[in-house]
Design a protein around this nucleic acid. Structure first.
Length: 323
DNA sequence: AATAAGACCAACCGCCACTGG
DNA sequence: GCCAGTGGCGGTTGGTCTTAT
């Protein structure tokens, strides 16, 4: 059972031949396509109008961009999909020269698998592991883009709110990162969506073996903007334990979130456990949050942003707010 | 080298919304 | 309001190519 226009005539199906393409292109270039159902007859094609339309839109249109998707296009697809879901036509509108079919195929063949391999549910963009946890406040965790720069090298990866929590916790252990690296400067920036909005945070740590004398803990505050601030407010002295060929270091830190808009301050406790091997290289890290903390990690995503705290909202964010 | 399995993607199918008679 | 025709969309299929065994 085909489309209405197809049922009336005997039509060819399957792949288009170059001759058919040529006929269709020639016809549309000279006459346009005011009514697709009349195109096959006028163009001398034994296809249904719907098939002609699809062939033109997905393959023959002159403004199509063919070839591999760029990293930026991929990120746009992920970001817009997070907001719109499987609305491929809408997503494709954000990618000039790409069709809904192309975006859909790319999603199903590449992005979906990539997200799954990174531990995200491609439908909800939540962490797969957190979905299994009951009584978890963070099941609506969103995907963010994190950009990390180490001197000349730069990497970008998708992260979840859970990972953001981990990197916030890592603020408390920057001295250890710095010690393990020979880089003169460690810089990390966290940004929502593709790198331009919402959490323009930058923390610079000057690496030095004698970190205590060179790091100004005040600079570990992560300023979201003049109204919001993350900061590490207190440290417990690291406790070292030596075992069979490795060393464990336990450290507790207190992280404060301050929202000056509503004079709200929230504290939560981070427990950080590091394992080092015999030559001092870190081999494992386990960051946990105090179960008793009532801090809502969705705060940043669901409360702060709609209240207009973040500035520099780009078109994708605007789209999110419009929906 | 042969075969199976998996990946990719163009095209099809079925549904829905809109429009004009 | 009803209905047929049409455009548009998302899900699915099936043919072809690539990779693994």
């Amino acid at each position: 059972m085909g489309h209405h226009c197809c049922s009336k005539q005997k039509v060819k199906r399957g792949l288009w031949s170059p001759e058919e393409d040529e006929k269709l292109v020639k016809h549309i270039n000279t006459h346009g396509h005011s009514c697709w159902s009349s195109v096959p007859k006028l163009a001398g094609l034994q296809r249904c109008g719907k098939s002609c339309r699809l062939r033109w839109i997905n393959y023959l249109r002159p403004d199509l961009k063919r070839g591999c998707f760029s990293e930026q296009e991929e990120r746009i697809i992920i970001d817009v999909h997070r907001i719109l879901g499987n609305r491929w036509a809408q997503i494709a509108k954000h990618l000039p020269g790409r069709t809904d079919n192309e975006v859909k195929n790319f999603w199903n063949s590449c992005i979906k698998k990539k997200l799954i391999s990174q531990g995200f549910d491609p439908n909800t963009h939540n962490l797969l592991s957190t979905k299994k946890k009951n009584n978890n406040n963070y099941t609506k965790s969103s995907i963010f883009t994190i950009e990390t720069s180490l001197s000349s090298s730069s990497t970008k990866e998708l992260v979840s709110m859970d990972m953001i929590k981990a990197s916030l916790a890592a603020l408390s252990t920057f001295p250890n990162y710095a010690n393990n690296m020979s880089m003169p400067q460690y810089q990390t920036s966290l940004s929502r969506l593709y790198g331009s909005v919402c959490v323009p945070t930058t923390t610079n740590i000057i690496g030095n073996s004698n970190f205590a004398s060179t790091i100004d803990y005040n600079k570990q505050s992560t300023i979201i903007n003049e109204k919001c601030m993350w900061s590490v407010t207190g440290f417990e002295t690291p406790q070292h334990e030596f075992g069979n060929g490795h060393e464990e270091m336990k450290q507790e830190a207190q992280v404060q979130f301050e929202d000056k808009n509503c004079q709200e301050e929230v504290l939560y406790k981070v427990n950080d456990l590091h394992e080092f091997n015999h030559d001092g290289r870190r081999i494992a890290e386990n960051v946990t949050f105090d179960e008793g903390s009532d801090f809502d990690f969705e705060f940043m995503d669901s409360e702060l942003v709609p209240r207009g705290i973040f500035t520099n909202i780009d078109s994708i964010d605007q789209l999110a707010w419009d929906c």
